[in-house]
Each structure stands twice: as C-alpha cells, then as structure tokens.
Nucleic acid binder design. Structure first.
Lengths: 204, 204
DNA sequence: GCAAGTTTACATTCATGTATGTATGCCTGT
DNA sequence: ACAGGCATACATACATGAATGTAAACTTGC
C-alpha cells in the first residue's frame, strides 16, 4: 500500500531513523545493511533511498536529532541567565551534560558515536567535532581565567590544565559509561566527580 | 618466489601486522580488505590466510603486540619496587601510561582501538577490556583507601570517586589526543594534568 | 620427497545503487 | 464537486562490484 499522506511520510522517516539507532547500536554502523534498517522499520530499502541519499546521509540525519554534548555545554555556559560566577556556571553546565546523556535517545546515539562507528569513514563528523572541541576549550579557558582573576580558582591550578582535566574527565566518563552502563550509576558518580573536581579547585 | 626460510616466514607475519596497523589506521578496520593489507606488505591474500584465520584473528594478533594501558597501569601499580606511598605510586604509574602511549606502535594501535574500529564486532575484546577495567578500578580504590588511612588523601575526597576521576581523565585524555595528536603536546599536558590532580588531592 | 609457505583461480555471498513499477494523495481547472 | 494529471512515497527487480573463503598449483627449504 504505497503513497501515504505527508504526515505519514514524515512518520516513516522518523521510524527509519529510530530503526537505524537500534540496529546501529546492536551491530555497529559498518556491519548493518540498509536492508536491515528498512526491515526493522517495517519498510523496504526503497523507502530508505527515498528519504536518504545513502547510509552516510542516514547516519548524519540520525546525529542531527540529538544535541552534541560539547555543543550543549557551550550553549549552557554562554547562557546569560546563568549565575555570574564562572566556576559555578561551568559546574552546572557540566552537570547538565551528564544529565542529558542519560536520556534514551542521547544515550543510544552517543554509544554509537563512541563505540559503534569508525570515525575515519565520516571525515566531516571528525572536523565538526574538532571545531566544537576547540571552541569549547577556548570558552572554558576563558571562564577559568575569569575565576582566577576573581580569586575563586586556586592559584596553583592553571586555567589551560583545569580545562583539559575537566574535558578529559567528561569525555572519559561518557566513553566508559556508554561502553557498559550497567557497571555503575552515572547519575550518582557523575555529579560526585564533578563536584569533587570543582570543590578542590576553588580557593579554600 | 614462494617458500622462504622459517625466519623469513616470521618476518612476513610481522610485515603483515605492520601493514595492518597502517591500513587500519588510514581506512578504519571494517573498510580495509585483506587484499589491501597484503599488498601493503608486498604479499597476496594467500599469505594472510596462511598466517591468520581471518581479519578478526589478524586484528587480535595486532593487539597482542602492544600492552593495553590499563594492564600496564595495573602492573606498574602492583610493582613491589615502587615507592611505598600509594598516591605517589599511582601518580608514577599514570605518568608511565601517558609516556608509553606516545610510542609509535602503541599510539597507532590505540588510535585504531579508540577511533578506527567498531567494538560491537569484537565482543571478546569488549569483555577483556571490561575485566581489566574492573580489576584496575579495584586496585586503584585500594590505593586511595590506603592513602586515606595514612592521611595523605584529603578526607573530603572519596576513594571511589577519586578513582573514577583519575580513570576518566586518563581515558578522556587518550581518546582526545589520539583523535588529533596535532592539537596539543600530550607529553606536556598529560603530566601537568596528572600532577595537578594529585597535587589537589593530597592533604594540604 | 615431503611439508611449509605463497600464489593464483574460482565460487559464493552480500550490499549497494539504480531503474522501473505502481498506487495513492493532492491540486487545479471548470 | 469532481475528473484528470502529476508528483509523491514507496516496493520490486536487476546489474554490479567487492570481499570472502577455499581449493588447487607451485616453489623451495630441509
């Protein structure tokens, strides 16, 4: 029963993306065929090729449904509504990233990004991530420098190093937890890590 | 010119593994064919199938030529020759991991592991890593607890959280740097991060 | 001469992309 | 308001290419 209404077409598009998430997660991106994705969505490959150019296009469309952690952290940190104290602003933004990572879709997609795909095959994703990382790094260093000027950051801690530590901690936490979410409760461990980190950096 | 002496056969085996490192790094594991690896080594696919069962077998043989970071950290930490002070022992072991990661072979293989392969396809590697991570976690928590008893670890820092922080930092650092080693000098940033971490955790 | 080591040839599988078919929704003129 | 026409939203069929694994041939050390 071909040709659906416009709304139904949009629904199958979403269904295909949902299916892609599931199968990519199960089998890894390279080992899944478009046939498998289509069948999971109750469609055929024809539907896939209608909505997407190819597997890579589908993959990118899937990514666009979630917000990248670094992008989100940037937005949070630069939100003018946030508290004026830079360290506190950073702390909250970091906590927020961990929170959002636990949402099912975000979790699935980022598991795929970290553990189920080969970055080499999608060079532009790599570049995108690169730009984001640099931008994020710069913003965070700025905040730590502001904190140092206010005297809220311990003098012995250099802003560049604090930034690398925080970013590494975040990335490492995501990488580890997404590899095996059963191993611990990130909703508990994450905040405790982050709070300990900031607690040890402020001038006491 | 087929059949060489025994030593030459071993040499082609190594050449095949070297070739695999190079091509896997360039193109990602799933996108490289055994043909490409063979040609890079100046052989044909027949040689590959003589020395290895299939691509997965070759991949694992490649992994066995390097020491996994967690395995190495464990060995270092448990080395009875190491200083008696647990925090100092941990600090040195962590520095050592960063040092060794920079060695060309280690760097290539771990870039492949982090960024050029889909873990889903090699389940046993996942399990191996899982066991190592747990073992490593336990040992590190033990050290932090010893430090706490000696009063060298700040009371407000819980051993479990300190362990997660350190492991996340290490994993995140490796992940980030291997993604783009040009972006910063890990030989400088790594030690400064680690020293700052331990410097802020000890009782001051 | 036998077996280790390597090549070549071959059969098979499988995913991809494209081309074609087709039924339906939607729009437009009257 | 409805009939015709066209674009949409898929399904199906097919052609192609690439990678895999295996078997057979070959070549040389021991």
């Amino acid at each position: 029963m071909p040709k659906r209404t416009k709304a139904e077409a949009e629904a199958t598009r979403e269904a295909l993306l949902d299916a892609a998430e599931v199968i990519f997660l199960e089998r890894g991106v390279s080992r899944t065929s478009l046939e498998q994705i289509a069948r999971q969505a109750g469609m055929t490959r024809g539907a896939v090729y209608w909505h997407f150019k190819n597997k890579s296009d589908l993959f990118h469309a899937m990514l666009e449904r979630v917000k990248m952690p670094l992008r989100q952290l940037l937005d949070d940190v630069e939100d003018p509504e946030r508290p004026n104290e830079p360290l506190e602003s950073l702390r909250r933004a970091t906590l927020h990233v961990v929170e959002r990572l636990q949402r099912p879709r975000s979790r699935r997609v980022h598991t795929i990004l970290f553990h189920r795909c080969e970055v080499a095959s999608d060079v532009d994703v790599l570049n995108l991530h690169e730009k984001l990382a640099n931008e994020c790094y710069d913003t965070m260093v700025e905040r730590f420098e502001q904190a140092r000027e206010r005297g809220t950051l311990t003098e012995s801690v250099e802003p560049e190093i604090a930034t690398r530590m925080l970013m590494s901690m975040l990335v490492g936490l995501m990488y580890d937890w997404l590899r095996n979410p059963e191993s611990y409760d990130i909703g508990d461990v994450g905040p405790r890590m982050i709070n300990t980190f900031f607690g040890r950096l402020v001038h006491v």
